[in-house]
Each structure stands twice: as structure tokens, then as C-alpha cells.
Computed example of a mutant assay.
Amino acid sequence: MKELIRQTVQDAIDTKQIFFAAYEDLIETCAQQMAATLEAGGKLLLFGNGGSAADCQHIAAEFVNRFQMERKPLPAIALTCDTSIITSIGNDYSFDEIFSKQVQALGHKNDMAIGISTSGNSPNVIRAAAVAKDQGLTLIGFSGAGGKLRQISDIAFCVDSPVTARIQEVHITLGHILCDLSERILFHAQ
């Protein structure tokens, strides 16, 4: 058991080190665009399934409440939270439409959409991403190594790992870093 623990921790460390070394410049660019979106009155719309849905809620909470500093709330909405909307769309249309209809209703050209899918191919994430692009939102994709999300995103963060848990661990760390950098840019902190 101890060897399994050590190996899991080492795999997590290795995956993060490889990812963040490869994406350092793009993360900085994304944080600047995110801060510019928020400063211009735009909002963040986040969507994903399962663990990625939880990540959406977690990241949105960091923006709306606070992350590292006391500051005014920043507008972010996890489209994974309203069970009445999700179940009515799923019932009346399809589970594949649960995020796209919300992006249609809530998304504006000055907003940013963040789609999270470890496979990069979740049909409801891809449909929402396509709607976001059609409506002129900037699309940020968090995915695994491949998939359609990578291809259609304006900024794509792809974790090169076959293990869902390692991908999700990188995604939440990435979300934390983007929130931290955005706060620092917006509120002139070092």
C-alpha cells in the first residue's frame, strides 16, 4: 500500500510538472484575457460533467467569493448547478443540450466560456462550446490529451495523461492559478 501511495503521488507530481512547464506562457496569456474579460464587465461561464462539474463549481466559487485576497466578487457561473434547468432541458430535449441552452441564454460576446472534459469529447460540453463560439465568446478548453474540445477552443489546455484522476488534478490546479493571476492583475497585487 505504501508503494502505491508513493507511486500515485509521484505520478501526480510528474504530470503537473510536465503540464505546467509546457503551458506556462499560455496560462499567463489566458489569465490576462480572463482579467480583461472581467474588467470589461464580462463573466465566466463554466460547464463539465462529473468531477469536471465539481471543478466548475469550485472554480466559480473562487471567483465569486474570493481566492487569495479580499476583493469584490467577480462574475462566474457554473452551469452545472441549477437542477431545475438541467433536468427540464434533459427531459424536454436531450442531456446533450443541458449546457448549450444555458450558454445561449446567458452568454454574451464579451464573456468567456470554460469547458472542462477529461476526454475532450463529452457531447454536451462540445455542443455548449460550439454555441459559445457561435455567440462570440472566448472559449477556454480544459481537457485530456485529445478530443474535439482541443480543436475548437481559442485557448486549449490539454493534459497528456491516460489517467482521469491525474487530468482532474491538473485542471483544478490550473483553475486555482488562473484565478490567482486574474486577481493579481485586476487588483494590482504582486
Rank of each mutant, 00 (worst) to 15 (best):
E39W: 03
T173S: 12
H176E: 04
A105N: 07
G147L: 12
A61H: 10
F157W: 09
T37K: 02
S122R: 03
E183F: 06
G115M: 07
I155A: 13
M112Q: 08
Q102D: 01
F95M: 08
K2D: 15
F187Q: 06
T15P: 03
N49Q: 02
D180Q: 09
Q17H: 15
I27S: 02
S161A: 01
S117W: 00
H108G: 15
Q33N: 14
K2Y: 15
A78W: 06
T37P: 12
S52E: 03
V159D: 02
I172V: 07
E24N: 09
I155C: 08
T138N: 10
A53E: 03
D134T: 11
E62S: 10
A12E: 10
D11F: 15
E39V: 01
D180P: 12
A31C: 04
A129E: 06
A21L: 12
I18D: 14
L4M: 14
F67K: 04
K43F: 11
G175V: 04
F99S: 00
S143I: 09
E97S: 05
I177A: 08
I27H: 02
K72F: 12
S153Y: 13
F67M: 02
E183P: 07
S84M: 12
D11Y: 10
S161R: 06
D92C: 12
T37C: 13
M69S: 15
I177M: 13
I77K: 12
V159T: 05
T83Y: 01
M34T: 08
G147R: 04
G50D: 06
G41A: 06
Q190V: 15
I27W: 07
I116E: 03
H188Y: 13
E28K: 14
K109E: 15
M1L: 15
T8E: 11
Y23G: 04
I86Y: 04
T118K: 09
Q32G: 08
V103Q: 05
D25T: 14
D92R: 04
L186F: 02
H171A: 08
Q68K: 11
G48H: 03
